[in-house]
């Protein structure tokens, strides 16, 4: 397999030809802003969790370029099927900061997006959304729509049967779907070397007759460019593909994890030198398209947006008891109406 596609080196210097969109500085600053907003959100979410005001949260620290690059390549009419670490992609697609906090705070109203109504909620069981993506793609095909489904999962998911079955089906049916492996090198405490003997994860696509390739997942330009090609191909009816984005999980698996117990600080700090936000900032600085003032203004505005959303989230009313029965079915069956009535009157009596 070719070495991972890369446009910017870790030091932020361009080492490859720029794709068209990357010649437009405004496009690049949009990507940059989105990554910074994602990281600001991440920091706040962890702070809320550490102070008992948010549930278990999965950080995307260091992986922002995968999330943002994938979403930026998509059209709004495409459908995103994310796993649980793609806050950057969800924000880009129009899920609000407050909805994300509601969701991670344990309130499923946060999954009823006001924005991308056809996008899927986070897949938490690991990889079980891969067949769904093929189903979405099948729906596009049956309705003759030039759209594509994008399914993001982690390195660990590539060991699962549902992912293998989805790849196989997508290959057989030439489904308009793009699978993205967000390879952050860790599945909780299991490094990729213990996950598979395959030298790359992208090659798992080959057995399904699907093109697979690697991209530097810390290079948002490369991620977006790779995804754009894959999506064009899918929408044009030329079939699915799988892209392995190589990045690194700089944070714990979730707030319920302490990664220092199974990996050394030295290992992690090496990867800080490759992280995506600094990389693009260095490039923009060198182009004189970015400066200290703009950076400070951006941090301030991201901080304000996130604080506003956090305040609204913390201010939101808890769901009433009756809500636990809602959305179990399209219409509540009689036996559940009885249980709902019982639960409500019980609480009223307390």
């Amino acid at each position: 397999m070719d070495s991972p596609y890369r446009v910017l080196g870790p030091d932020g210097r361009a080492i490859g030809a720029l794709p068209t969109f990357a010649k437009d500085v405004d496009e690049l600053t949009k990507l940059y802003r989105a990554m910074v907003l994602t990281r600001t959100f991440d920091t706040k979410a962890i702070a809320l969790q550490r102070t008992g005001r948010l549930g278990t949260y999965a950080s995307s620290l260091g992986q922002e370029a995968v999330s943002v690059g994938v979403a930026a390549a998509m059209q709004l009419s495409d459908v995103l099927l994310p796993s649980f670490r793609e806050h950057g992609a969800q924000l880009w697609r129009g899920v609000t900061l407050e909805e994300l906090l509601l969701y991670w705070g344990g309130d499923e109203r946060g999954n009823a997006f006001t924005g991308p109504r056809e996008d899927f909620p986070n897949c938490v069981p690991v990889g079980s959304h891969a067949p769904h993506a093929v189903g979405v793609a099948l729906a596009f095909r049956l309705r003759n729509e030039a759209r594509a489904a994008v399914c993001i999962f982690g390195d660990g998911a590539t060991s699962k049967g549902d992912v293998a079955e989805a790849l196989n089906l997508a290959g057989v049916w030439k489904a308009p779907v793009v699978f993205v492996v967000n390879n952050n090198r860790w599945a909780i405490s299991i490094p990729v070397a213990k996950q598979t003997a395959a030298p790359t994860l992208a090659q798992k696509a080959f057995a399904a007759g699907i093109p697979g390739s690697q991209v530097d997942g810390n290079d948002v330009i490369a991620v977006r460019a790779t995804l754009e090609r894959a999506l064009e191909r899918a929408r044009a009816g030329a079939g699915p593909s799988m892209i392995e984005a190589l990045t690194y999980r700089l944070s714990d698996h979730t707030t319920a994890d302490d990664a220092s117990r199974y990996r050394s600080d030295e290992d992690v700090s090496k990867h800080w030198a490759e992280e995506p936000i600094l990389r693009l900032r260095s490039y923009l600085f060198a182009l004189r398209a970015w400066d200290k003032e703009r950076e400070e203004a951006l941090l301030l505005s991201c901080g304000q947006d996130v604080e506003r959303a956090a305040a609204a989230y913390l201010d939101s009313e808890l769901q009433p008891a009756a809500a636990m029965f809602e959305h179990t079915y399209a219409e509540l069956p009689t036996d559940l109406v009885e249980q709902q009535t019982g639960a409500v009157s019980y609480l009223r009596g307390l």
Partner: peptide, 17 residues
């Protein structure tokens, strides 16, 4: 591929079929 096509059915349903 029971797990696969069950999931495909679910995904297609969520996409409106």
């Amino acid at each position: 591929t029971e797990q696969g096509f069950a999931g495909v059915g679910i995904g297609a349903a969520m996409a409106g079929l």
